[in-house]
Write a protein that binds this DNA or RNA. Structure first.
Lengths: 251, 251
DNA sequence: TAGTGGTCTAGACCACTAA
DNA sequence: TAGTGGTCTAGACCACTAA
C-alpha cells in the first residue's frame, strides 16, 4: 500500500510511540523491546518500516540492537574526560553539569600496546615538521571500561626525539612518554586539541565494537615544547556515545 | 535472490566501488553521482541495496542527497572554532593541523534573536543554583555561514543578574552579555565547556537543515564569576560536519 | 513534465544467540 | 533448535526539483 498524501510518516509514528513507552517506563534501561516481527503485527507495518523506526531511536542513542537477541533500551552513563585535570581539580570541583554526571569510579584499562617504527603519513609528517623519508615511532593502544572498548589512541613521536629512550619500549617508565621527552630536552609546555565528530568507518566500527549509527569523536592532540616545535601528535578515536568531553579555561 | 553464505556484503561492495571512484576523481567535489536507478542497473542490485550503499557513504560524510535532484559529492571545509582565542593568537599561530585547515574568512551571521523570560527546565535550574519557580532570561539565536545554518545557541541568565540591564534587550551593547554581567558585578572569570556528540533529533535536523545521518555536537558552556557562581549557561547545537573544535592549553 | 530521492509493501534466507 | 536481527529482492507511489 502506498503512502497517503499528507499523512504523517509511518516510521516516525512508530518511533514516537516506542519512545514514549520507553520514557514512561514500560521499557526501562536494559529492557528488551518486542521483536521486530511482533512490532510488525502490533503496528500493522512492513518489516522495513519497523526497522526504520528502530533505526531512528538508535540514532538518538536510545536503543541498541544485539544480533540474534533483540533490541534493548540503552543506559547512557558517560565517561568524563577532563582535558585539563590539574587546573580543574583545585578551582572547579566536580559539580555543575546539565547532564548530572558524577565522579567516575570506573577504570580505564589498556589492552596492549603496539609499537612500530615506520615512515609516517603525509599529514603526520607535515605537522611534525619532518620529510617523507623520516621515520617516526607509533605507539597505538585501545582502552576499555568494564571490558567495553571506548577509545583507540595512536601516538606519533619523531625518531630523533625517541631514539635511545624508553619511548621505543612497551614500558616507558614513570611519567610516561612526556617525562621521557622532558628528560631528552623536549618538555611539552603546551597542548592543542582539535576535535571532529563524524560517523565511523567500517574498520573503526569493528575496532571499537560500535553499535550501529553511533558517531565517533576524532581527537588530535599536539604537544609543543618551549621552542614551539611539535614533539608528539596523538590521534584518538572515541566512542562518542560513551564520552563527555570537558574543557576548563580562564576568561 | 538470498545472500550467498560467506559472500562479502553487497552494499559494502557497492559503497567501496563508489568511494574509490570518488577518490580517483571520477566524481570530484560537488559532482552528481549516477541516479539510484542507474546504479541499480550498473551494479545489478535492488534499490534497497543501492540505498544502503549510498547511506554508508553519507555516514562517512562523503556524499549527500538532495531530494528530487540526486546524490552529490560533498566538500568538507570546516569552520575552526577556537574556544580560547586570546591565548592562541599570540602563542600558537594558525598552522599545525593534520586536517590542513586554513584561516577562515567566511562570516558567521546570526539570523534573529529570540528573548524569553520564563521558568527554566530542571537541569538549567540546578546548575544556576535556582529554585523551580525562579525566572531566567533565555536568549536564543541561530548562526549561518554562507547562508547555511551551522549552529543554534541558547543562553540562560538568572533574572536577578539580568534584571534592568540590556541583557533583556535584543541589542546588548558593546561587549555583549559578558560586559553587562561584569558591570553588574558578576564578571565571568572562568569557563567550562562540556561536549557531547550524538545523532540529532528530528527537530534539530529541521532547525539546522542537516543532511541525513550527520551528527551534532551538543556543547554546554558555563560562565563562573569570581565567587564560583554560575552566572550564565549557554547550550549550543552544532552541525558536526561543519566544525573543527580547537582547545589550546598550557601543560 | 520528466526525472529524482524518500518511503513503503511483503516477502526471503543468512549468521548468530540463548536455552 | 527455535527465535532474533541483518541483509536482500522487486517492485510501488509520493513530494519535490529543474528545465
Amino acid at each position: 500500500m502506498p503512502r497517503k498524501p499528507g499523512a504523517p510518516l509511518r516510521y516516525r509514528e512508530i518511533a514516537d510511540g516506542l519512545r514514549r513507552r520507553i520514557e514512561e517506563g514500560e521499557f526501562p534501561p536494559g529492557a528488551r523491546l518486542p521483536t521486530e516481527r511482533a512490532l510488525v503485527n502490533e503496528y500493522t507495518a512492513s518489516p522495513g518500516t519497523v526497522r526504520a523506526a528502530l533505526g531512528a531511536l538508535r540514532d538518538e542513542g536510545l536503543v541498541e540492537s544485539r544480533v540474534g537477541s533483540g533490541w534493548y533500551v540503552r543506559s547512557w552513563r558517560p565517561i568524563v574526560r577532563n582535558a585539563l585535570k590539574r587546573l580543574s581539580a583545585d578551582q572547579w570541583g566536580e559539580g555543575n553539569s546539565i547532564w548530572g554526571v558524577d565522579i567516575d569510579d570506573r577504570e580505564l584499562v589498556a589492552d596492549g600496546v603496539q609499537i612500530e617504527h615506520l615512515p609516517a603519513g603525509p599529514e603526520i609528517v607535515q605537522v611534525l615538521g619532518l620529510s617523507e623519508s623520516d621515520l617516526v615511532w607509533r605507539r597505538s593502544r585501545r582502552y576499555l571500561v568494564d571490558g567495553v572498548p571506548v577509545l583507540r589512541s595512536a601516538s606519533y613521536i619523531p625518531d630523533d626525539l625517541a631514539h635511545g629512550t624508553r619511548i621505543t619500549q612497551v614500558d616507558t617508565g614513570p611519567g610516561g612518554v612526556y617525562a621521557r621527552l622532558a628528560e631528552a630536552g623536549f618538555k611539552p609546555m603546551r597542548f592543542r586539541e582539535d576535535l571532529r565528530c563524524r560517523m565511523p568507518s567500517a574498520s573503526e566500527m569493528d575496532d571499537l565494537q560500535l553499535a550501529g549509527s553511533t558517531p565517533v569523536v576524532e581527537l588530535v592532540r599536539y604537544a609543543y615544547d618551549a621552542t614551539g616545535r611539535v614533539v608528539e601528535v596523538n590521534r584518538m578515536i572515541l566512542d562518542a556515545s560513551r564520552y563527555l568531553l570537558r574543557y576548563d579555561f580562564p576568561s
